[in-house]
């Protein structure tokens, strides 16, 4: 931040707790898409089982 100020630039955005947590996720977007698809299937299956 101070280096940026010396160079007349705006300070870099500070990262929040969750943002820092998200940064640790090293998944490619397509892999996350697969996980989301699995979660959606799990949701549909649970609704089906719960109403049977």
């Amino acid at each position: 931040m101070s280096e940026n100020n010396e160079r007349g630039l705006s300070p870099e955005p500070q990262k929040g707790f969750k943002e820092r947590m998200y940064d640790k996720v090293k998944l490619p977007v397509w892999a996350l898409d697969i996980i989301i698809a699995v979660l959606v299937i799990a949701l549909v299956v649970s609704i089906y089982l719960g109403t049977r």
Binding site: V25, L27, V29, I36, L39, V40, L43, S46
Partner: peptide, 17 residues
């Protein structure tokens, strides 16, 4: 629980994309 996890996963996807 699944709906909450999916919502967070979608939020994470937005961030990663």
């Amino acid at each position: 629980g699944l709906v909450i996890i999916i919502a967070v996963a979608l939020d994470l996807r937005k961030y990663l994309a």
